[in-house]
């Protein structure tokens, strides 16, 4: 256990935090856009698995990582389109839609994966490389933690202010936020509620798909069926705990990522404490966070309520 407090291990835990944060942050920030538009999308987990699986197939087939990332985003957008059709056009219950989709995609990707490998060994790919920022990366400790990461990690962090700007400083952002609070106002102005909800969920699910692609290409060299292991759900919790504000969501994601990074390192070090306890920690922490932060929620008033004229 004391091995956990050596300098090298601590650096590795912190660097791991940023790496593990990346996919959850993409999904959480994307889902934030969706939820501000009034759609309680529970299909984040499924969207993420789909993004991961599609990027796996493309990476092994084409050997091109940019293409793999792009196809992960596209597959997320397609999922968003389906969720938008069910929730915005057909007004099916948002929870049920998301749950159904998670179950379907979990099975479907597993089925396709089995067919893809045809009983043999799963093909592998070379994952994303780290990118050292010149000069900054040579700063002791900080350089290793912050400036020797994969480029997508920086993009994920950058997405927080960008989405924040989009939601609060642009006309489209205003309209999307309005959908979550009072869709009638948009409708009365003669603007299409459905169109804007579709845009929000396609942006959100595209980012979730990107998160799935990073989860695939940034951590592993082959697909496995339970790859996401609840990260999509953690993204949803991060939004609630972060009170639907970009900064708050970012902070909550960091907490989960840190706990998960600790869990991974405990398993590697082989401490006496059962590793399962540490893996359960992010989920336990999420419940505790929700209890502690229950006051003053900022939940969009019409979140999850289908809009009928």
């Amino acid at each position: 256990m004391s091995e956990l407090f050596q300098e090298a291990v601590i650096i590795s835990i912190l660097a791991g935090t940023l790496r593990i944060m990346t996919p959850i942050l993409f999904a959480a920030i994307g889902e934030l856009v969706t939820q501000r538009a009034g759609i309680w999308n529970m299909g984040v987990e499924g969207t993420m698995i789909m993004g991961a699986f599609v990027s796996y197939v493309v990476a092994t087939q084409s050997d091109s990582l940019p293409l793999a990332i792009l196809s992960g985003i596209l597959s997320g957008m397609v999922m968003g389109l389906i969720i938008g059709f069910m929730t915005s056009t057909l007004r099916v219950d948002h929870f049920i839609t998301g749950l159904g989709l998670n179950l379907l995609v979990g099975g479907l990707t597993f089925f396709w994966f089995r067919i893809y490998v045809k009983g043999g060994h799963p093909p592998t790919f070379t994952g994303l490389e780290n990118f050292s920022i010149p000069i900054l990366a040579s700063i002791p400790i900080l350089g290793e933690v912050f400036f020797n990461q994969k480029p997508l990690t920086y993009i994920a962090i950058l997405s927080v202010p960008v989405v924040s700007y989009f939601l609060y400083r642009t006309r489209w952002g205003l309209e999307i936020r309005c959908l979550g609070e009072n869709p009638k106002a948009i409708d009365i102005k003669g603007l299409s509620v459905a169109l804007r909800q579709y845009i929000a969920i396609i942006i959100g699910s595209g980012m979730t798909g990107l998160g799935g692609a990073f989860l695939m290409l940034g951590f592993s060299d082959r697909f496995q069926p339970d790859l996401t292991a609840g990260k999509g759900w953690l993204a949803i919790v991060a939004i609630i705990a972060g009170k639907w504000l970009p900064k708050g969501v970012f902070a909550a994601v960091l907490v989960f990522a840190f706990l998960e990074s600790v869990a991974v390192h405990v398993q590697i070090i082989d401490a006496d404490i059962p590793y399962q306890i540490f893996f359960a920690l992010p989920y336990l922490a999420s419940i505790i966070l929700l209890i502690l932060l229950r006051r003053k929620t900022n939940q969009p008033a019409r979140l999850g309520v289908p809009y009928f004229r």
Binding site: V92, L104, G107, L108, R114
Partner: peptide
């Protein structure tokens, strides 16, 4: 894995 796939599919079609 075909089984959960079929189940999920039927659920979505039934919802529609």
């Amino acid at each position: 894995a075909l089984v959960p796939t079929i189940e999920g599919m039927f659920l979505l079609f039934f919802l529609c």
